[in-house]
Simulated assay, not measured.
Amino acid sequence: MSIKTFELISTTENNVELISYVALPENAADDHPVPGIMVAPEWWGVVDHPKDTAEKLAKAGYAAVVMDVYGEGKLTGDAAQANMWMEQVLADQDMLMSRCRLILNDFSDQLAVDGDNLGAIGFCFGGKVVLDMAREGMPLKAVASFHGNLAPKQPADNNFSAKVLVAHGADDSMVSMDAVADFKKEMDNAGADYTVDVYDNAKHGFTNPHADERAAKNDIDLGYNEKAANESWDKMMDFMKANLS
């Protein structure tokens, strides 16, 4: 399926431009809106991996937007820089969530997007972003996290309505199995509908083909696992199909 891509610029109330990246199926039009999927990238920003993800989603018939939560389209391959930017936005999580809500509203206002049928997927830091969007009660039907940070901005409560799919690597040294257990407790307490899949021999970042090179360059414990990446992607696509009609 042929697709079209463009930048979606959202301006915050203090005039920061959030430069998100949209991919749409060519046939998505005003009279034929399609379900939308928000994509929250890893801490590197709107780099190739999340853009490729959005394009894959568009080829599968979804509208997709990669959220620029840092603002000004900032991106990096340097872990120290990425960590600094991530810490900056995590220091003001209300601001982070208001940026996500702004992008969600601007994206769902696109005539080609069915605003009543929205999902979200996030990678690493982005996994936390999309789970927190659901915890904040944003109108997401389905949320998937890949090797995500599971720590909540505030715990989910009984207003939590999104279905959740979590793909976690068994060898992830950044998000512990204790964190996964805490997350399951949180979801159980909220009465949420969730699935956690743990992939063997998979490290943090296992879906990103650039993970090994990033690990070597930055001396951090990341690794790509093609089998886990493909299996978790297929599972996520089935999950979205089941929940976004």
Rank of each mutant, 00 (worst) to 15 (best):
D197N: 15
M236P: 00
N117M: 15
I121K: 11
V198K: 06
Y199V: 04
A142Y: 07
Y224I: 06
A229W: 01
V196E: 00
K217L: 00
Y194D: 08
Y194K: 12
D219I: 10
G223L: 01
L165F: 14
A142L: 08
K184D: 07
D193N: 14
M138D: 09
Y199T: 02
D172T: 02
L118A: 11
S232N: 11
V198R: 05
M236H: 04
E186S: 09
T207D: 06
H168T: 08
A134N: 09
F239S: 12
G119N: 10
P209D: 03
E136N: 13
M138P: 01
Y194V: 07
G169T: 07
V130P: 04
A120R: 07
D116K: 14
K227W: 01
A181G: 11
D238E: 15
K227I: 07
D182Q: 14
D221A: 13
E231S: 03
H147M: 03
D234V: 11
G127Q: 09
K217T: 03
G169N: 06
P155N: 07
D171L: 06
N225I: 00
N225Q: 09
Y194T: 09
V166C: 01
D178G: 08
D171Q: 08
V175T: 08
F239A: 14
Q154F: 13
A181W: 01
A144K: 02
A170L: 04
G191A: 09
K227L: 06
N208F: 04
T195M: 12
P209A: 04
M236W: 01
G191E: 10
M138K: 10
T195C: 12
A167L: 02
K141D: 10
Y199L: 00
M133V: 08
M240P: 10
N218T: 11
V130K: 04
S232D: 08
D238L: 13
